[in-house]
Design a protein around this nucleic acid. Sequence first.
DNA 1: CGCCGGATTGAAGGTACTCAATCCGTGTGG
DNA 2: CCACACGGATTGAGTACCTTCAATCCGGCG
Lengths: 247, 247
Amino acid sequence: MKQPGYLDVQRPVSPSRLKIACSNCNLRELCLPVGLSEGEMQQLDEISHLKRGYARGDYLYRSGDKFQSLYAIHSGSFKTQVLHEDGREQVTGFQMVGEIIGLDAISTEHHTCDAVALEDSEVCELPFDKLEALSREIPSLQRHLHKIMSREIVRDQGIMLLLGSMRAEERLAAFLLNLSQRFAARGLSPTQFQLRMSRREIGSYLGLKLETISRAFSHFQEDGLISVKVRSVEILDLPRLHSFVGK
Amino acid sequence: MKQPGYLDVQRPVSPSRLKIACSNCNLRELCLPVGLSEGEMQQLDEISHLKRGYARGDYLYRSGDKFQSLYAIHSGSFKTQVLHEDGREQVTGFQMVGEIIGLDAISTEHHTCDAVALEDSEVCELPFDKLEALSREIPSLQRHLHKIMSREIVRDQGIMLLLGSMRAEERLAAFLLNLSQRFAARGLSPTQFQLRMSRREIGSYLGLKLETISRAFSHFQEDGLISVKVRSVEILDLPRLHSFVGK
DNA sequence: CGCCGGATTGAAGGTACTCAATCCGTGTGG
DNA sequence: CCACACGGATTGAGTACCTTCAATCCGGCG
């Protein structure tokens, strides 16, 4: 049952991005790795399949689940979080359309974090053993997979830098700029967007409390850097927001 | 799934897993991936070679360098760090014998961090294109390589949890326990060891200032948890140190 | 309408930082 | 051989930033 607004919206996206192809997910442009032939795309499509119907709060997988597949986000968005036995939780990332999640589970063959939908979402499941087999046959796919994993490592390093050496408002500015870039890469506005996550979730991701996030938003607004009303954000002064990070 | 040690920054290295073989580096036992035949080991050895003579402070690679190879540490130890334009630096990891560094560079084909020797060290260079070619032929090597990359992602998630939600002394306790496990995995004492890094480097890694590290060491010593004299550490009460993390 | 969760704002408090003095071990030069 | 300098480490005092606790606001929904 095709819902309006999902599959028919083709979003122009920079073609060089590192995403696994998934044409039955209608994400060919987003996901197309450089240099894959039609036939090879076909093979990739054959091993993957779409899973629909995730609603806000639904788990795509949980920490401890047996690892079977990677997932390419086809629509919507997710957060990943690790839980500590004492109840503390740390959001480790927010993933949006075209991004791959589940890479953490390869090492132990069990997932090490939870993946939770932030809104109505669909994913494209990529069984990992089939993906490995295919990447042995297609070197460009192999390299592509390695790049995706490496890119995740680089991303994590960036978050470590943020958590380890930035003050609260710098962290939030860096976060907003990161969202801005990722929206822009999907052909959406880099300056006007809806946050899909709560203040608490942003705080967890940035190593801060929700009140601190709220205050920082208010302060940015007073300074004329952004306009924010609950979850809708407009960046008014992108250059100044940039210069604010690492000031 | 979640045993004590679950949230440690780096997981213990069980000797039979997750290391690329490197017999000309004398690391066969540590590095041997499960299920590689003698002949396959031979092939791996043929593509790799030893590089000697790194002294404390020497760079194995720098941020921006063209990516050619991964490196398995054969002797000694390294730190990896990312630098921010304003001069801030963040240590992203300390690597010891048998661990693989350079994975960050695959995504952009340029290194995104510096790798600096902490003491006299030797590495085994693994040209990445040859490693990829070999892993297409040897599925168990392919899986092994994927696990190494995934493990790095999991490690980074652990550091994010640490940086995002632990207080200073918890961070240091987690750090010491992590070192302890990794020394134990190498047949060294889990309770008595020499730190190879300065207070400042530990602080950078843990998102704290060097004075805070020093105070936390002193406090642990007053509490009878450890005995510390500059860089030589003895853990006196491992269980209590464990329970201290996530208290 | 009233409830609920999320968000905002205020005030007080605590943790880690900053600045600074001192100590200590190592290496160097008189 | 000792004096001295140097960098790393330790310790103290005052401060800044973020957290904690609390009250209030706001929008959605039964």
